[in-house]
């Protein structure tokens, strides 16, 4: 057990430091939360909705968490491929999924920091109030949200080992998720077919649960149903990561996609 923790922690430490030294990542973590919060605030200001503070905190927080995952966790694969380190870590005796879990957790930690930054921005800059009406349920929803982002990030990262075009895919994945998962506006305005896709993506449920538990749960049965749905999705993502790894491992060695030279 100790070597496993050691691998995860060591990986977290190295990659969080590597990433935080990059200007793009610094922008995503330090400036983007402020910009996104400002954007959402300006969008909502005219309509003056109740729970605007909670809405902005959850939306900009999750948008930022998603950006940090896409541009770091998933982007890490591509960066490491071009740095030549992907091959080195891949052939080490440690399970690649554990090494990558370290990457993901490091980026999540930095992503969470931007959630805090976004909250500070909403409260002190825009003077909005942010409450957590159901703290226990919020804690539950928050834990599951973090787990779900970890699971989806692991899955995407593994899939990205398959292609040398990961960078293009990475860039294409940012905004569609903002739209599909109802991070900016309700998914009910989307066409039915797109709504179906939204419901197999965990950020949709995470956003819903966090907003509800902060603003006050209207129907506890619906809340728990959403909680179960998110848990099932997390399980599915983790299972897919486990099951697909063997196939992906074989494929990357057949196609030779771990390196660029």
């Amino acid at each position: 057990m100790l070597p496993i923790i050691n691998v995860i922690f060591s990986s977290l430490n190295v990659h969080a430091r590597q990433n935080f030294a990059r200007a793009t990542f610094q922008f995503v973590i330090l400036f983007q939360p402020i910009l996104l919060s400002f954007l959402l605030y300006m969008m909502l200001r005219g309509s003056n909705p109740v729970h605007a503070g909670e809405y902005i905190v959850v939306s900009s927080g999750l948008m930022n968490l998603w950006s940090s995952i896409i541009f770091s966790s998933a982007g890490d694969i591509d960066r490491e491929r071009y740095m030549g380190t992907l091959e080195c870590i891949y052939v080490s005796p440690s399970d690649f999924r554990l090494i990558f879990l370290g990457h993901v957790l490091g980026n999540l930690l930095l992503g969470l920091f931007s959630m805090v930054l976004s909250s500070i921005c909403v409260v002190f800059l825009f003077g909005l109030q942010v409450h957590i009406e159901n703290p226990a349920e919020f804690l539950c929803a928050f834990t599951l949200s973090i787990l779900s982002f970890t699971a989806i990030s692991l899955l995407i990262g593994l899939i990205f080992t398959l292609s040398r075009s990961a960078r293009i895919l990475m860039n294409c994945l940012e905004y569609p998720i903002y739209i599909l998962c109802g991070l900016v506006f309700p998914i009910s305005v989307l066409p039915k077919a797109l709504q179906f896709i939204a419901y197999v993506l965990s950020p949709t449920w995470a956003a819903q649960l966090l907003r509800e538990s902060m603003a006050g749960i209207q129907n506890i049965r619906i809340f728990y149903f959403d909680l179960i749905a998110l848990s099932i999705l997390i399980l599915v993502y983790f299972l897919l990561t486990i099951v697909l790894f063997k196939k992906i491992d074989r494929r990357v060695r057949i196609d030779g996609t771990l390196g660029v030279h």
């Binding site: 190295v14 430091r17 590597q18 740095m83 030549g84 380190t85 091959e87 080195c88 390196g259 030279h261």
Partner: peptide
């Protein structure tokens, strides 16, 4: 593998 790659430069 030859060259300057395969290392983490920022640590």
């Amino acid at each position: 593998f030859g060259g300057e790659r395969s290392l983490y430069w920022r640590i």
